[in-house]
Each structure stands twice: as structure tokens, then as C-alpha cells.
Amino acid sequence: MAQLKKLTKIGWRGIVVEVPEDWAVASIGGEDHPEYIRIDDPYGSSYVEIKWWVRPKPTLILEDALESFLARIEKEARKKKISLNLRKKKAPPYLERSDRETLVFSWRSDKKGIGRVWYCKTCGKIVMAQVAGTNIPPGASHILSTIEDHSQTGKNLWALYGLQVEIPEEFKLSDQKLLAGYIQLSFNGPHKTRLKVERYSIAERFLAGYEFSDWAKSEFIKRSRGFSLSLYEESFRGHLALGGKGKRKLVGSLPLLGEIIKLYSWYCEQEDKIFLLEMRAKKDIMIFEEVKESIRCHS
């Protein structure tokens, strides 16, 4: 099998795929069905496209899903007045997995693509994936075989632009900010738990000459208005970290039963990045620590 450069994982809404290290997410679909992600190589010559139905209608069958997808490619070719060569077949035995029902396809026009569409018997998703472009990489088929449509651990991997974090499956993405230099993923979980994972690149620019602990303190204070917050400093993976925990206050600093806030931030000097985690919940749960431990900051 043709070898690819070093691979990295991209994880989004329960789908995980391994792509060459310098490929990056170029487009993501909303909460509409189907969900969608496209990952491009740095030169715009090839890409991976994944489309998936989390809860497909019982009437949706693999062939139909594939047909509608290929119809788009046919339409594009017609528009450009170029010939299109399409092939589709049942997956050969070496591609078969016991938990999947798979069809494979390939096409060639001014670009070319190879892909697979399958129904996962474990999670019920229908997933369609293809590697396409003017110059598809030699290990395209390997990329397709790395796609996982459900987690084995009960936690989804969210990984893009170098950020990697594992979030329990029951937490749903509520908001995202994917900016150059700043990433924020917000999740809503059971019992009105809200979780936010943030990463600041080029931390030096955000610190603007301040010490990390001062920056983090002022950030925590801003975020915990209405809470009585107690702070602590510690070392986390060899980095200086600041944590904060508090309860919502009604009058002065009198703590009342109710919502709690947890904050944690550390500065990874090796990568010049600041990570910040925020959780608001009705009760203190262990998830916060688990999520914190799952974040990869430097290799």
C-alpha cells in the first residue's frame, strides 16, 4: 500500500479520520442532515469529503444516498461539458467489515475521486466519504479506511487545527469559533451543563507583556461575575496552571446552592499556546477533570 506522510487525526461531531499532517479542515456543515466536513491539502489539489446521516430516515438506503451524491458530480461535469466516467460496486471482501455494509465508487472527469459509502450497524449512521481532486494522494484508500463513525470509549474526539480534546458523547456542540489564532468549542451537556474549550495561539500576543497568572486571573474574574470564586495555582504537565472554582452568589460572598463554575487554564510555552477550560453546571461532576486531561498541548 502506498505510504502517506505522517498522519494526524481530525475529529468532528463523532467522525474521526486520519489525514496527512499538513491537511486542514476547510469546510464544515451545520447541524442539518446530513452533516459534512471537508479537509483540504495545503495546495488545493486534493481533499477528503465526508457526509454523514446520524439518524438516517428508514427509507434512506445506501444506493439512494450514493446516487444523490454522484448526481452532483454528474451535474458538475455536464455544466463543464466534460466526460465523466463513473463506477460503483459492492465493497470487495478485503474492505468489508462485519459491522458495516459498504459500497465503493470511483469517478474521473477533470478531477478524480475514490470513495465509499456505508451503513454502520453499531451506531446506525450512513457515512459517505471520498478523496478527490486533480492529484489525489497515493494513500487515498488508506485515508478512507481510517474513518471511524463512532467512538469505542463513550467520548468523541474533537480534533482540528492542532487542538485535540475528548468530550463525552452526550455533550452536543452548541457553538464554535474557528479563527486564525483562536479556537473555541462550546458544548451543552446533561443537567444544563455547559462546557467551553478554548485555545489561544501566539499566546505572547494575548498576554501582551503580562505574566500568564495575571492574565488568567483577570480572564477568570471576567468570566465568573456573579460567582464567589476561589483560585489556586499548580503545575500541569510542567506548565504553570491556574484553576478556579466557585458557586453562584446572591448577596455579597454568601454562597448559595445552585450553579457552580469551574475554570482552568495553562500556558504551554513549547507551543506558545494558552488553553482555557470553563464549565458551568448544577453540580460538581468529574467530567471537567477528564476533559482537561484529554487535551493534548505539546508532543
Binding site: D22, A24, V25, P42, Y161, G162, A180, G181, S201, I202, Q270, E271, D272, K273
Partner: peptide, 12 residues
């Protein structure tokens, strides 16, 4: 120089 991902650097 700034330890960014390719995409971050490109977009910036």
C-alpha cells in the same frame, strides 16, 4: 516562527 498550524498561518 509562531508555532501555528499551516491553516492558521495561511489564513492569517
Amino acid at each position: 516562527e509562531f508555532k501555528l498550524t499551516r491553516r492558521e498561518a495561511e489564513v492569517g
